[in-house]
Design a protein around this nucleic acid. Structure first.
Lengths: 87, 87
DNA sequence: TTTATATATGAGTATCTGTTCATATATTTG
DNA sequence: CAAATATATGAACAGATACTCATATATAAA
């Protein structure tokens, strides 16, 4: 089911932290890894999933890939979620 | 992490189908089970999780428990999600 | 072209999770 | 109280999943 895949993607702590980080602005893989305190491999694996679901997109600058949120909905989902848990 | 728990709850097909069903109106456990084609036990287990996260609430009418979505955010999340996947 | 840096990917594994099955609790009726 | 119906819950097992580690690819610089 397409919709549950979307929420499942946001339902993992590492992936959600990636999304929250990118909500602040674009970031490359190595900075994401350092910021989150996980290996670059782990981040890369999760970014692939997020990419496939069009939650994130990237642009290349030389050897570096800068990731960003793919569209507004992602940010909207996160923020409504944040409102929900304040209760 | 609180926020990822929320999304994880929506990330399971059975639970999400429960949410989608309740978005149409309240329903009792046995009707939900019949509607979704799963055992009442399975539904009940998932409803407990959804209850703990305040995604659903219930009211008792005799021996029957009618479940409903707990607040607007739930519905909002689902609908934004639906918009996202149409792309 | 060799080396270095940045990222991606596949396989393997340990952990997590959803269902099933048996049983318990609650409410109503006889 | 006994029986019937509706729901909840615990334990156990099968399948899913996120990380690790080794390796591959890509770009840039020497």
């Amino acid at each position: 089911m397409r919709l549950s895949e979307l929420f499942k993607a946001l339902g993992d702590v590492t992936r959600l932290r990636i999304i929250l980080a990118l909500d602040q602005g674009e970031m490359c893989v190595c900075d994401l890894a350092a910021f989150l305190g996980v290996t670059e491999s782990a981040v890369s694996h999760q970014l692939r999933l997020l990419r496939q679901l069009h939650l994130v997109a990237n642009r290349r600058k030389g050897p570096i890939l800068y990731y960003r949120l793919d569209d507004d909905h992602v940010s909207q989902l996160v923020h409504i979620g944040l409102v929900h848990i304040r209760e």
